[in-house]
Amino acid sequence: MARRALLSEAWWQQATIIPDNEREIAKHYTLDRSDLELIMRQNKAANRLGLACVLATLRYPGRPLADGEVLPAGVLRFLARQIGAPWESLQYYPLRDFWRDGKQMISA
């Protein structure tokens, strides 16, 4: 049975775009107290910022980042300022499974 598309591809792309202007970033990506409590439980700055990015994009635009998709620099810096982490620490987030207590657990 053929499926009928309810939304056009163009509409879907527009509805799920991540904003890059300051007003929209502040509107959609301001973390509340419960978010901050959860995020600050993470040990490392990279993990805190990575979790903040995941929470933020799941809430708006309501989807995870696609493979190879990068958050706009303004969003990343806005989230980093809220949690007191350097925005550059996100580059270490993918390595979180490979290192524990300074020892490599899985070869990359």
Rank of each mutant, 00 (worst) to 15 (best):
I39K: 00
L79D: 10
D67H: 05
R77S: 14
A46E: 10
L31Q: 09
R63D: 01
E88D: 12
K27M: 13
A45T: 11
L58P: 10
A45V: 11
L76W: 04
Q91M: 14
Y92N: 12
K44Y: 13
A73W: 00
L49Y: 03
R96F: 05
Y29L: 07
H28M: 00
R81W: 03
Q82P: 03
S34L: 13
L49Q: 07
A46W: 03
S34E: 15
W87V: 10
R96A: 08
E22D: 13
V54Y: 06
Y92L: 15
Y29G: 01
L58D: 11
M40L: 12
L55Y: 06
L31C: 11
L38T: 15
L76T: 09
L65S: 08
G68V: 04
A56P: 07
E24K: 06
Y29K: 05
A46Q: 07
P94L: 10
E22T: 06
L58F: 12
L76F: 12
T57F: 03
W87I: 05
F78V: 00
Q82S: 01
G68D: 05
P61H: 03
S89W: 04
D67R: 00
R48S: 04
L51P: 12
I25V: 12
L36T: 02
P86H: 05
D67A: 07
G62I: 11
G68C: 00
L79E: 06
D35Q: 10
L38N: 11
D32F: 06
Y60L: 10
Q42W: 11
T30V: 09
L65V: 09
Y93S: 04
G62M: 11
Y29R: 06
V75A: 06
M40T: 08
A56I: 05
L38D: 12
R41M: 14
R59W: 01
E37L: 15
D67Y: 02
G50L: 01
S89K: 07
L65F: 09
E69C: 05
L38R: 14
A52S: 08
Y60D: 06
A85C: 15
V70A: 14
C53P: 03
R23F: 05
R96I: 04
N47L: 13
P94S: 12
P94A: 09
R77P: 08
L71Y: 12
N43V: 12
R23T: 11
L55I: 15
N43P: 12
V54E: 11
G68M: 05
Y29S: 07
F78C: 01
A26H: 10
M40K: 10
V70D: 13
L95G: 07
L95V: 05
D32S: 02
R63F: 03
L58Y: 11
W87F: 13
R77L: 13
N47P: 03
M40Y: 05
T57W: 02
C53Q: 08
E69L: 04
D35E: 11
Q91P: 01
L55Q: 06
L71M: 12
L71N: 11
R33C: 04
E37Q: 10
S34M: 09
A52I: 02
G74V: 01
L65T: 07
P94Y: 09
